[in-house]
Amino acid sequence: MIRTFGRSALTVVHELGEITIFGAGAVRGFFNQRHRAAKLILATHEIGVRCLPIVAIVGLFTGLVMGLQLYYTLVKFGGESALGTAVALSLIRELGPVLTALMVVGQAGSAMASELGIQRNDEQIDALQTMSIDPRGYLVGPRLLAALFCFPMLTAVFDLIGIFGGYVTGSLLLHVDGGVYWHRVFESVSWADVLGGFVKAVVFGVVTMAICTYRGFNTHRKASFPGVRGVSESATRAVVWSSVMVLATDYLITSFLL
């Protein structure tokens, strides 16, 4: 049993190392590409713009639910005036970055893993190589770099809409004073909280996009099955491992930030 555990741990460490080298190679390769701005804009559209609606919707409902749950908790202690503080800090420090990352992984990450897996199976990645185009720099690099600023931006949107959702439930439905709600929000949130949330978003962005692109790009090596099943397995594993890594890195970063 110890041997099995050790072997699994070594495999995970080995894989993390491979993903790091893969990501670093992709970013380095990107800077040798031509038309870099156009590629970055396309990747930003894929990660940022396409994920905006789902992030906004989830942000709104998260805020609505938090307003409701926290109100009924706080009212027991007569502290409903602290609703703005509770909603804003929970969203900015924790739920915003985590849920945004999970949403982007579900939408853009799975699509990337599938697309790269199909391109691998269809020999399009080999074709790039025969054309002297670095496939990692061309296909992966722009996505990793776009993730660096898309994740914080989407997190900011999530936080703002979520805080507004808390206001809708707390003030408009449950009659907490609106002025008090917003005063508490502005009073309690510090730049350190916002910065901490953004640090998390950047780390989640790089980690999840690296895992998703790595899985798709290496479908031929990593999947247990060839063809369509292999692509489906790559996409599934990409989403599962990215989600696990979001929660694991969240714990680590929170430990350092607190």
Partner: peptide
């Protein structure tokens, strides 16, 4: 310069 024409074309 090398070129390769793939069996299944490998078009984007």
């Amino acid at each position: 310069t090398f070129s390769y024409m793939f069996q299944n074309n490998a078009l984007f």
